[in-house]
Structure formats: structure tokens, C-alpha cells
Design a protein around this nucleic acid. Structure first.
Length: 428
RNA sequence: GUGGCUGUAGCUCAAUCGGUUAGAGCGCUGGACUGUGGCUCCAGAGGUUGCGGGUUCAAUUCCCGUCAGCCACCCCA
């Protein structure tokens, strides 16, 4: 063995690529239904595109190097900064709201684990230029519908939705200071995975008092819109802060997607640039990582391109999704696209078969034939293994009678067809 | 980047206490079968037991290192 692919990188054998292509096709189909247009950008970007807003933390996980011109560059770890630049550059010319999607290959240098590699493909869908909750609902609906298109129902996946404005308002109302919010967010984010004592310790270290810590845990415990609304009602500015979340959830219900959706304030998301609604999609078994995540990031384009445009978007990777699809044991075999496998009985039949193959291919018909003289048995074996729907057998007898034997490889039935018809791709 | 577990044929797995030529099924190639695939039978190819070192008369087995994979952290595209 001469080595293997780099850790975290994948070789796509035909069956693997068939799955990937099926995923891409479904992504594009759903994006089309929602009226999104596809775009793409460079896989290699200036390093500053990411260091500027994301900080040193991200830089350590970047595939970054210096190119031969001395430029500091990085393989893109996410698509959003590229999108922000592209939209920013033509912001005046683009009709709002902009609905764009992309399927970039993204890279990240970190230790690989199940569902998390150093390279993956990700569906990105974004709505730019609309600050209202209808855009949030539209986008979350698109994410859910993508899963529905893969035949997952509410029993299989669900969306957990939160809103950082709600979190902020509740926490500030609970007595926390602006400076303590990041720590509180971190604790709420971890509240499902980390024992409460450890979380309490984190809060204590950040100088957050017992009473305020209590309100952090209370906020983390809300699992319904009603509970959130009730809490908001007791807080100054709570009515306004919850408006967007309420409207979004209501719209999703109106679209018939209510069964997929739950309000869950423990969804925070790591990226710093989210400003409003945030959401993630999970498999109900919760055995895997989030399938999809996104949210509203109203300030990013301004930071990158200097133009004030509100955005909401999500990313859905092919790795976790692919594992879910494989788990369901859906077969994704490389499609056997052969229309016919041509069989030459003897050596003198090879030339006529070549001629026939060339003619059929000119007509757009997919054909293959054995590349060396073999017994018919071997040729039919290969034809079957290739998934050809039929074999076209040509031997001395057939040539004399100006026919070919067309054998259906599924049923095993065969009959003679005039060569003049076969040459036109008519097999019966 | 830190810690734990694992590593035998393309795949799934065997190999007694450390014992001499590392096996099986599937898959692959060929044959039985010179004008008809799927079934059956026979044969073959394919291994530096991840790699390197150590202990030992002897290492797939024990020890160390390293690489890779899985898991948990970190982080979460």
C-alpha cells in the first residue's frame, strides 16, 4: 500500500460519490423550490478574510500558508465571509432580498472524529437584505424541507430554535451584566452536556453571584415558547425581544412544519457573529452531531464590506447527513447507466460490434463491450455486473440473417431484432 | 492540542499459555462451461499481522515509541 488520503480527507469511490451526488442533487432541488440561486467563490482566500473577524482561535484551525507570491492564504473554513464580500461588492446592484445558496468544500485543520473531518461539503443558504422574522422562518423552513426531501419526518429530525436577543434580555433582566453575558452563553450552551456543579463553578469563577447563576440555569431550562414568553413578560423590554421568535415559530406552524420545531434556549451556537435567531437541526436519536445550524448575523457584511445589510443563513454538512442516510441503509449504488452491452460471439464479430458501438454512442446511447475475446458466458457475466439492462449479441448466424439477439438481462428473455433497428437504438 | 481504547487479506473476522508454514467467509482472477450471466463445485492471487525498536530460543500475542482510526475533552465549519 502506498499510503492513504490525508487524515480527515476522503477518497470518493463510485458508490461514495453516488451518495454525495444524491445529496447534492437533493440540496439543489430544494434550493430551487425556494427560489435560491447558486453561486460559488474561491476555495483559497486571503488569510485576513478570516482573521479579521474570527480571532486567533480560528486561525489555529485554518489550513493556512504562504503562497509563492508571499501572500498569506487559507483554505476556506466557512462560506459566509466569501458571501459577505461578494454581496458587499455588488450590494447596490442586487435586488433585495437576495436568496443565494452554495455547496462549497470547506476545510478545517482539527482532529477528526465521527461526523467531523478536515474537509466537508456544506449546503449554505442565505437570505440577505431582510431583517424581519419572515426571512428567518423562510430559511428554517428550507432547512427542514431539505431533510424532508431526504424522507426524514418529525420523528427523525427536529429543529431547535432560540434567539440571542431573548437570551440577552432574560439574562440582563436576571441581573447579569453585559460583560458576564459571554460566560452565561457558554454555560447555557453546555448545560445539556456538562454537570451542573461544573457549570456553577464556571459561573462562580466569572464572578457571577448565586442569584444571577440561578437565573442562568432557569433560562437554560426553558423548552417551550410559552415558558419563554412567560419569563419575558416579567422582564423589561421582554415583549419586544420575543417578538421575532414568536413570529418565526408561528410562521413555521402555518407552513405545516410545527411538528419539527421546538423553542430551546440552550441553542447558542459558537460563532460570535450571530445577532438574533439561532437554530440547529438534530436527529431525534441525538446520537450524532447537529445536522445543520444557522442563524441571523446582521452585522457581518458591514464588518467585512462596510455595507449595512441584515442576513440570515444556515449551513448543512454532508458528513453527518451522509451517516444518517447510510444508517437508514438506503442503498446508494453508482448508477449502472449502460443501455446495452454488446457481445461479440467470435473474433470476426468484433469489428461489427465496434461499428455498432460507435454508431449507438453517436446517438447518445450508453454501451460497453468486452475489451478482449472472451466466451459469451464471460461477456454476459460482465454485462450483468455492469448493470446493463440488455445484452446485444452478434455472431456469424446473426450477421448472416442481418439481426441481433437482444437479451433482457433482468428476465433472461431474448429475441431477434433486425440490425437496421438495432443500429438506431431500437432494441425491440 | 490533551487523555483513553483499538490496529491481522479489498471487506467482516479467527489464530489455545508467547510456539515454529497466520486461517475462514465474502469479494477478486481463472477453470469445470468453445453460442448464453445469476446457481454449484474446484483452483489461484492477495499479508513485512499499521510502522520502528525492545524483551525472548521463539512475538500477531509482552514492553516502548510512532502513525492511523474510534471515543471523550478543546472546538464546533
Amino acid at each position: 500500500m502506498q499510503g492513504q488520503a490525508l487524515p480527515g480527507f476522503r477518497d470518493f469511490y463510485p458508490d461514495d460519490l453516488a451518495l454525495r451526488n444524491a445529496i447534492f442533487a437533493t440540496w439543489r432541488e430544494v434550493a430551487r423550490r425556494y427560489g435560491f440561486q447558486e453561486y460559488d467563490g474561491p476555495p483559497l482566500e486571503p488569510l485576513e478574510l478570516y482573521t479579521g473577524k474570527s480571532g486567533e482561535e480560528i486561525v489555529q484551525q485554518l489550513y493556512a500558508f504562504e503562497d509563492k507570491g508571499g501572500r498569506k492564504v487559507a483554505l476556506r473554513p466557512e462560506m459566509t465571509p466569501t458571501l459577505a464580500r461578494m454581496v458587499g461588492a455588488r450590494a447596490q446592484a442586487l435586488k433585495k432580498p437576495i436568496r443565494w445558496f452554495a455547496i462549497p468544500q470547506l476545510f478545517r485543520y482539527e482532529r477528526q472524529q465521527r461526523g467531523r473531518l478536515r474537509e466537508h461539503f456544506q449546503l449554505n443558504m442565505d437570505i440577505i437584505g431582510e431583517a424581519g422574522p419572515a426571512a428567518d422562518a423562510e430559511l428554517i423552513a428550507a432547512a427542514i424541507d431539505t431533510m424532508r426531501a431526504f424522507e426524514f419526518g418529525p420523528a427523525d429530525v427536529h429543529a431547535r430554535i432560540s434567539d440571542r436577543r431573548v437570551l440577552r434580555t432574560l439574562l440582563l433582566g436576571g441581573g447579569l451584566t453585559e460583560a458576564q453575558l459571554p460566560t452565561a452563553f457558554e454555560v447555557i450552551d453546555k448545560s445539556e452536556r456538562v454537570p451542573e456543579e461544573a457549570l456553577a463553578e464556571i459561573l462562580e469563577k466569572a464572578g457571577i453571584g448565586k442569584r444571577e447563576a440561578g437565573s442562568v440555569f432557569e433560562v437554560a431550562s426553558f423548552r417551550s415558547l410559552d415558558a419563554v414568553s412567560a419569563a419575558l413578560a416579567k422582564v423589561k423590554g421582554g415583549e419586544d425581544a420575543g417578538e421575532s421568535l414568536r413570529t418565526t415559530v408561528a410562521a413555521l406552524g402555518t407552513m405545516g412544519l410545527g411538528e419539527f420545531v421546538s423553542v430551546d434556549l440552550t441553542i447558542v451556537r459558537g460563532l460570535a457573529y450571530y445577532t438574533g435567531i439561532v437554530f440547529e437541526l438534530f436527529d431525534r436519536g441525538k446520537e450524532l452531531r447537529a445536522i445543520c445550524g444557522g442563524g441571523r448575523y446582521d452585522n457581518l457584511i458591514k464588518e467585512i464590506a462596510g455595507i449595512d445589510l441584515p442576513c440570515v443563513g444556515f449551513g448543512m454538512g454532508d458528513v453527518v447527513l451522509g451517516e444518517l442516510l447510510r444508517e437508514r441503509q438506503k442503498a446508494f449504488e453508482a448508477p449502472g447507466q449502460l443501455d446495452a452491452f454488446l457481445v461479440a460471439v467470435g473474433g470476426e464479430d468484433v469489428a461489427p460490434v465496434l461499428t455498432l458501438a460507435a454508431g449507438l454512442r453517436n446517438r447518445g446511447i450508453a454501451v460497453e463491450y468486452a475489451l478482449r475475446n472472451q466466451p459469451i458466458r464471460k461477456q454476459l457475466e460482465l454485462a450483468a455486473a455492469r448493470g446493463a439492462s440488455r445484452a446485444v449479441i452478434i455472431g456469424p448466424d446473426e450477421r448472416k440473417a442481418k439481426v441481433a439477439v437482444v437479451r433482457d438481462l433482468k428476465t433472461g428473455k431474448q429475441h431477434k431484432v433486425a440490425l437496421t433497428k438495432v443500429r438506431k437504438g431500437v432494441f425491440k
